[in-house]
Design a protein around this nucleic acid. Structure first.
Length: 411
DNA sequence: AACGAGAGCAACCGCCGGTCA
DNA sequence: CTGACCGGCGGTTGCTCTCGT
């Protein structure tokens, strides 16, 4: 613990980067890539620590960065993502191509928080300030949690739309601890909680939309439950966009563009009913260059517009080979960053949202057919030596499973 | 013109988990 | 098994700029 070793080194420059330093770093990374960051400064002839170089590259020099002010759509997206993910800036940034976590964090702290407060919304909980101030939150949350657990234990949960409307606001465990300042760090290490918070979402939307009821949300979140495996206690309910509605209305300052979903990685081993998102047939967006953001906005309607592209997939019978690549080769074609890794997908509901059908089709068996951690672990077990990333991801995944199993016990 | 407050932003700090020798 | 090293993340700091007085 303590300071990073490089920070002890003397003679290292600190503070703002000069154009010369930028040039050196840019040239070096363009030529050779960054490789080991700790060796970059030496190789590039910089009096900086590796961390500093990395930060400079990620936040400023990276060629795919989008500079300039945030659009209204981006701000909306950030607000809603924050409602779901909390202060997980890196995950939020992953949904905004060209934006960095630092940039988003700064925007949030300097601007968006204020905006929310002005609108009577607590930026931490995304609930009305009045409610938070009244100190009813704890009671409410306790009650909601209790309801959630009851529902999770209940076998009576039906997969029809009506029951969703009835249950959606209470089915999802809290997405994260929205109250603690260190919540993000805690929650980021327990993806169990990474679940769209319907209750908060409802409140959030209520604050920005006109008389938005859960049933209305079904319109805003154009889903319907189309599939379920009722015989399985871990049945996974697929939301399918019911219309070609753009979930993100650019004309609405605070429209709903983040769907209430559970992350597939988590849903698979939630002890009871889980929700996953399944893309459905729809109208493809006009622009064929799909970015993660546009997937978040248009994606669900797009994915099934064409046949699944299996060209990049390995044919397997067990559906496990799709995890063969550390960097999913399709990602770049979506406009996602090259750095997107499978592990990020597995832990990132929004990336999963943006996944094309070819990917979803592969994930689907994982969520449908894996009732317990053992099966899931077996499915994800690395099956060959030439797939180190898969192996790594699987190990990580398996760890999560173990944690979740331990956390949930055998509900 | 000088000053202070606030906003915006870049960078640093401290911590954590993963990897590897 | 252990400790050093590393990359990554979120929180925080501090600098610069803008604007109002």
């Amino acid at each position: 613990m303590g300071r990073h070793s490089c920070c002890y080194k003397q003679k290292l420059r600190k503070g703002l980067w000069s154009p010369e330093e930028d040039e050196k770093l840019l040239t070096h990374i363009t030529k050779y890539g960054h490789g080991c960051w700790s060796s970059v400064p030496k190789q590039a002839g910089l009096q900086r620590c590796g961390k500093s170089c990395r930060l400079r590259w990620i936040n400023y020099l990276r060629p795919d960065l989008k500079r300039g002010t945030f659009s209204q759509e981006e701000e909306n997206l950030i607000i809603e993502l924050h409602a779901v993910l909390g202060n997980r800036w890196s995950q939020i940034a992953a949904q905004l191509p060209g934006r960095t976590d630092n940039e988003i964090k700064n925007l949030w702290n300097s601007c968006l928080k204020k905006k929310l407060r002005q609108r009577g919304i607590d930026p931490v909980t995304h609930k009305p300030l009045s409610e938070v101030e009244n100190g009813e939150e704890d009671k409410t949350r306790s009650q909601e949690l209790s309801n959630e657990l009851n529902l999770l234990n209940s076998e009576s949960f039906k997969s029809d739309e009506g029951s969703y409307e009835q249950s959606a606001s209470s089915i999802a465990p809290k997405a994260y601890d929205m109250e603690g300042s260190s919540s993000s760090k805690i929650s980021s290490k327990n993806d169990t909680n990474l679940i769209a918070n319907c209750s908060n979402k409802d409140l959030f939307l209520d604050s920005y939309t006109t008389s938005c009821q859960p049933s209305d949300l079904m319109g805003n979140y154009p889903f319907q439950i189309t599939d379920t495996l009722p015989t399985n206690s871990n049945s996974c309910h697929w939301f399918t966009p019911t219309t070609t509605t753009r979930p993100f209305d650019v004309n609405s300052e605070f429209s709903s563009n983040v769907m209430s979903i559970l992350p597939p990685t988590t849903t698979s081993f939630l002890p009871s009913t889980s929700f996953c998102y399944k893309p459905s047939l729809g109208v493809p967006p006009e622009d064929s260059s799909i970015s993660a953001a546009s997937f978040a906005m248009n994606g669900p309607n797009y994915w099934e517009a064409g046949a699944p592209d299996n060209s990049n997939e390995s044919n397997t019978n067990d559906g496990s080979k799709e995890l063969t690549s550390g960097k999913y080769s399709v990602l770049s074609s979506w406009g996602l960053t090259d750095e997107a890794k499978w592990s990020e997908y597995l832990h990132n509901p929004m990336l999963m949202l943006a996944a094309p059908e070819s990917l979803c089709n592969q994930i689907k068996p994982a969520t449908h057919l894996v009732p317990d951690s053992n099966t899931l672990g077996a499915m994800l077990l690395p099956d060959s030596k030439e797939q180190p990333q898969q192996s790594q991801t699987s190990r990580i995944f398996s760890k999560d499973i173990q944690k979740l199993t331990a956390a949930f016990g055998h509900i």
